[in-house]
Design a protein around this nucleic acid. Structure first.
Lengths: 263, 263
DNA sequence: CCAACTCTGGAACGGTACTCCATTGTGGAT
DNA sequence: ATCCACAATGGAGTACCGTTCCAGAGTTGG
C-alpha cells in the first residue's frame, strides 16, 4: 500500500520532485531501452538520482510498478486514435464495422508488443497472476464493446468476448522478441534454423510439426495474427448470426464479413 | 550447459543417487505443494539433502529446471489416455472425431493447469521467452494432428493450428488459482466481490464490463473454455469446409475423421 | 594399489527487493 | 517571525536469491 492513500493533495505540500507518474514513466523508458531484466530499483534510483526509500514511498513494490507500467502502455495502445492518422481530414470514418473495431483494438495491442518487447511477458504475467486486474479489464472493454455491436445475444457477451480476449493474449504473448526487435535478416535466420530443426524431429513423434516446417519459415506474424482474429470472428458470426434473432440454422456463408476485403 | 553431455552412461560409474529426473520430480512436488515461489535451489538442496553444486552438476540453471518441469507435466497432460478411463472395456472408441481429439487435448491442458496452479504462469513464461521451445512444440503437435484430420487445406495448417494453440494458451493461462486450488465457497466469494466491483466502475469508461458483471458471477471456467474451443472450431469448419471442396454449406456434424484412433 | 574420473556439498560472491530511520524541506498555525 | 507537524527523501542495512568455486568423497579400469 502506498502511504499516499492518506489524504492526497492537501495542497501540494512539497515541490513533489518525485511523483508516481514520473517513476512509471522512467520505468517504461528503462524497459524499452535496456530490456526487461534491467528494471531494478537500483537502476531506478540512479536514473532518478534518489534512494530506494523515496521510490517505495510512492509505489509499494516492484510488481505494482510493473503492473502500472503495463497498464499505462496498454492504455495508450488501445486508445482510439493510436496507430493511423492516415485519414486525411474531415469526415470519412463513419463506416467502421464492429469487425473493424475489433481488428483495430487487436492490432493496437499487437503493435504495442512489438514496440515494447517486454510487454509480452508482462501481459502474460499480469494475466495469470491477477486475471481480472486493470489491464485485463481495459482489454476486455475494448473488445467487448464491438462484440455487443456485432449483434451477439446478450447471454453470450461474456463468453464471446472472453474467447476473443484469450486468443488475442495468447497470440500477442508469443510474438515477442525478448531482446531488441530483430532485424529482417536476423528474423529470417531465426526462422530458417527453427524450420530446419523441425524437419529433423522424430517423424513418429512430430509428424505434424515436420509437415508445416516449410510454411512456418515464411510466415508473417502480423498477417497471421489477423488471420486468427478473422477465424474467431467468423466463428462468432456463424454461431450468432447478426441481424435476425429468430433464425434457427445459421447459414454460414454470406454473413460473416460484410466488413471489407480484409486488410 | 550440463556437463553431463560429455559421454553419458559409460557404465553407470556410481550409484547415481541424484539424477536429473529425480530433481525434476521433486521440483514438481515442491511447486505443487508449496507454490511457485517456494521452488528455490535452497529448498531443493534441503529436500534432497545435498548441496547446490550437486544440483547444478545436473541441471545447468533454474530456468532450465522450470522448463523441464513444465515439459514433463505437459507431456503427461497431453498423453492419449489422460482424463477419462470411463470407457468400460474393449471396443468403443472408434468414433472420435477430430473435434473430439482437439477438445480432449485442450481439456488435458486445462485440467493440468487446475491441478498444478504454477503451470499457468510457467506456460506463459515459456511461451513468451522461447516461443518455439519443446513445450510449445508438444502442444502444437497435439493440436495440429487433428487439425489435419479436419480436412483443412494444407496451406492453412500452420495458421489454423496456431490460432487454436493461441486461444488455448490464452484461456488456460487466465485460469490459474495462483495459490492452492480454491474451495467452491472461496471461488464464489471471489467472483462475488469481483462482480460487485465491476458494477461500481465508471459507466462512461466501462459500460461493457458493467453490463456483463452479472453473468460473469456465475460462469464456469471449464465450461466456458469449451465454448471458446467450439467457437474457434466452427470458425475453422466454416472457413474451410471439410470434405467436399466445392460444397457451399458445411453441415458441421458428422464430417471429417477417417483418421485413426490416434497414436 | 593407484590413478582417473564422476559426482558431491559446504562456503563463499554478487546481486536482488525491500526496510529502517535520521534528516530535509515546506505550509499552516500561532 | 517562529515553530511545528508532517510529507517526502536517500543512505545504510537486512535477508534471501541464483550461481560459482573447489576440496574432497566414491567408484572403477588398469
Amino acid at each position: 500500500m502506498t502511504r499516499m492513500a492518506t489524504r492526497t493533495r492537501r495542497s501540494e505540500r512539497r515541490r513533489q520532485v518525485l511523483t508516481r507518474e514520473r517513476i512509471i514513466e522512467t520505468a517504461v523508458e528503462l524497459l524499452d531501452t535496456t530490456g526487461a531484466d534491467a528494471l531494478t530499483v537500483r537502476a531506478l534510483t540512479s536514473r532518478l538520482a534518489t534512494g530506494p526509500g523515496a521510490i517505495y514511498w510512492h509505489i509499494g513494490n516492484m510488481s505494482e510498478l510493473l503492473e502500472a507500467a503495463t497498464d499505462a502502455v496498454v492504455a495508450t495502445a488501445l486508445a482510439p486514435r493510436s496507430a493511423e492518422p492516415a485519414e486525411p481530414a474531415g469526415a470519412g470514418e463513419a463506416a467502421a464495422t464492429p469487425q473493424d473495431e475489433i481488428r483495430a483494438a487487436a492490432l493496437g495491442l499487437f503493435d504495442a508488443v512489438t514496440r515494447h518487447p517486454w510487454l509480452a511477458a508482462q501481459l502474460a504475467v499480469q494475466f495469470t497472476r491477477n486475471p481480472w486486474g486493470p489491464v485485463t479489464l481495459r482489454i476486455f472493454e475494448s473488445i467487448g464493446r464491438p462484440v455487443r455491436a456485432l449483434g451477439v445475444p446478450r447471454s453470450e457477451w461474456f463468453a464471446v468476448a472472453s474467447t476473443l480476449v484469450h486468443y488475442l493474449l495468447g497470440a500477442t504473448t508469443q510474438t515477442s522478441q525478448n531482446a531488441a526487435p530483430l532485424s529482417a535478416a536476423d528474423r529470417a535466420a531465426f526462422l530458417d534454423t527453427a524450420s530446419r530443426a523441425w524437419q529433423e524431429l522424430d517423424p513418429d513423434d512430430y509428424p505434424f510439426v515436420r509437415a508445416i516446417a516449410e510454411q512456418m519459415r515464411g510466415h508473417d506474424d502480423r498477417e497471421q495474427f489477423l488471420t486468427g482474429v478473422d477465424l474467431v470472428l467468423t466463428g462468432i458470426t456463424t454461431l450468432h448470426p447478426p441481424t435476425a434473432p429468430g433464425s434457427p440454422a445459421p447459414a454460414p456463408e454470406r454473413l460473416a464479413q460484410k466488413g471489407r476485403p480484409a486488410r
